[in-house]
Write a protein that binds this DNA or RNA. Structure first.
Lengths: 228, 228
DNA sequence: GTCTATACTCTGATAGAC
DNA sequence: GTCTATCAGAGTATAGAC
């Protein structure tokens, strides 16, 4: 991510110590397509065009691949969470953009979310990081929503808030499963992100103040049906 | 379920051709606890107190165990879906009870929902049944909601309905993951069902007419926090 | 119906030459 | 850094006696 620019000259060889990154990239793609359990190290090596022994030079265990990808994800998600709410509080559109950023990250690393419990069970060292990150996002989302309330964009009874926040987490994590299963979408792509965003924003819709209804989520085109 | 009472006398031997059912029962428990992928046939046999060879007499493949359990689930879910909406339309409480029945079934067979996509990938013969059943429930839920609308319990703009129905599916399927991950509930049990029910009903809450707010979901005690 | 013994395959992982 | 073996273990499944 920030390593790219740190490399010296020598653009000659297509591989310049980048094998590791290449492996991670295509492993992410494979894991997203199926779960890690159903992707073998042999397949990863073959896809990378290298030998299995070589793969194990770069990653001594299969789990370390998952760990490395989680670290990548954590970097991106953490940066977003720390950045917290969007810079200009009054600007309604930015809320939607924050949500869109979060969605894009979750989408990029969606294999992590397909079966979080299984992931935690197989990589116990991930249990705490997962929980921590999940909690961090939960706090960020709550802060965001409270700012929306303070800005008068939305009116939510205090007692309704916890349930809504939990539903935001659930829907923003698992909308893709619904889409691929119920709507028969075999291979999801970026165009379906808008649909997921709409599902989440629909959780807030009944609470929106009239003025906010127009401004909010205008970036994600609320009414869009999935491009199936 | 209805076989129990059909058995003749001979209560002497604890096993009376029931080994198969016993296997299914404990396999369901094991699968619910971890996914099928992480439960071995050896473990199933050991838990059943029988030999592995014997297990293979009753179920020639591991997949047939999953298939048999899905068939069980399908029976229960199908019966509920066909029964459709509750008998007495005017009675608000019955809507909540229908939802509760659905929840109980999903809960009993929760391993099927933990990673539906993986399940479909590994048992291609389940793809259509899963999709069909999922669609059937979708229709049943929509009919239910429309009756609630007709009965004046709830007021939902037509354009909001599709998103809400999708969210009902998503939340009612994956609330348990949120609970165990975010709230740190290690072993979920029936007492947490109320929490899940509340999450789903909270999707309708802002649309409820004042009179319905009191009557509806009174069985599930809306405000209940999870008994963590 | 149940057990013993065994076969076969897949997969993650290691050792060591180049 | 990369490749060629090669291994050990797990896990599904079968054959056949009782």
């Amino acid at each position: 991510m920030m390593i790219e620019s740190a490399m010296g000259g020598a653009m000659g060889g297509p591989k310049r110590g980048r094998t590791r990154e290449r492996i991670l990239d295509l492993t992410l793609a494979l894991f997203n397509d199926r779960s890690p359990e159903r992707v073998t190290t042999a397949e990863i090596a073959r896809t990378a065009g290298i030998n299995e022994g070589n793969l194990y030079y770069h990653f001594r265990t299969k789990e370390s691949l998952v760990l490395a990808l989680f670290a990548r994800f954590e970097d991106e998600a953490g940066a977003l969470a720390d950045r917290g709410a969007p810079p200009s509080p009054g600007e309604a559109r930015t809320y939607g953009e924050f949500l869109a950023s979060w969605f894009a990250i979750v989408w990029r690393y969606r294999f992590l979310f397909r079966d979080l419990l299984a992931l935690a069970a197989e990589s116990p060292s991930l249990v705490e990081p997962i929980r921590a990150l999940s909690g961090r996002m939960r706090v960020a989302v709550e802060a965001l929503v409270r700012r929306m309330m303070a800005d008068g964009l939305v009116v939510i009874p205090e007692e309704d808030l916890p349930a809504i926040l939990a539903n935001v987490w659930i829907v923003s994590t698992y909308w893709a499963v619904y889409l691929s299963l119920q709507e028969g979408v075999d291979r999801l792509d970026d165009t379906h992100l808008g649909w997921g965003l709409n599902q989440v924003s629909s959780l807030f819709r009944p609470y929106l103040t009239p003025s906010a209804r127009d401004a909010l989520f205008s970036a994600s085109e609320p009414g869009d049906p999935p491009a199936v």
